[in-house]
Amino acid sequence: MTGSNNLKENIIYGIFLVLGLITVGFVLLISIYLIIAGLPAIREIGLIDFLFGTKWASTAAEPKFGILPFILTSVYGTAGAVIIAIPVGFFTAVYISKIAPKWVRTWVSGAVNLLAGIPSVVYGLVGMMVLIPGIRVVFNVPDGATLLAAIIVLSIMILPYIISVSVTSLDAVPKSYEDASLALGANHIETFFRVSVPAAKSGIAAAVVLGVGRAIGEAMAVIMVSGNVANMPGIFESVRFLTSAVASEMSYSSGLQREALFSIALVLFLFIMLINACLNFFIKRGQKLH
């Protein structure tokens, strides 16, 4: 009786162990597949030519596979989006966490959650219909589908992530820090910005890094508003991101072109891994401080 019971318990333990390890399995699966699929093209084109080549002409008679335009576009686009989203997100977060009365907090955090829940294609569509004509008129350029449009859309899309992670870390600042500052004669605003914010700086940094990760990985919204041409980036240039390069050519690609797309995905994956490592660093440091 106990023997069969033990056996049953062991089998069940085994099942749960497998289920527990399944996420690890998936991560390995994704990494291995990307490396296997991404390396051949890099080997054929040459790492330097691939990463630093400035010309992408995958379907030309003499195809060129240089992805520097995509890398720079992704870097500039992400940097631009983060630069716009940080101040807005930061001040909103401080307001929500420290100043807002309870009902305002409920409503504004609800709004932030909803912004995060809107599908990226909807942002893309609104960008296509509002931003692109808007940019064409305001800046008097021939085509509004530019890096600028992508930056604006991305900044709106990462705003909710920056806000909600910052709010969490600001909420975690011990009340005694703030009380001490108030008792020393600082007013509330000074206390929040000069005591609470520095105390929550690891969390706020994590929020920014999370936003960077989201922005660099976004594909559909940017493909809809950025014009999707493999130019070197310029603010009023139609551009193509790492993500949209993969998405736009995959359906009709073949041979070396297809393999090169996998290599682009591999480069994107390495970027994301780097960002994840930064994120973990900031989260760990934040936990150590408190």
Binding site: Y33, G217, A219, V246, F262, A265, I272, I275
Partner: peptide, 10 residues
């Protein structure tokens, strides 16, 4: 943290 386009590819 992995972007959805990479999920699509894999």
């Amino acid at each position: 943290g992995i972007p959805s386009i990479i999920y699509g590819l894999v």
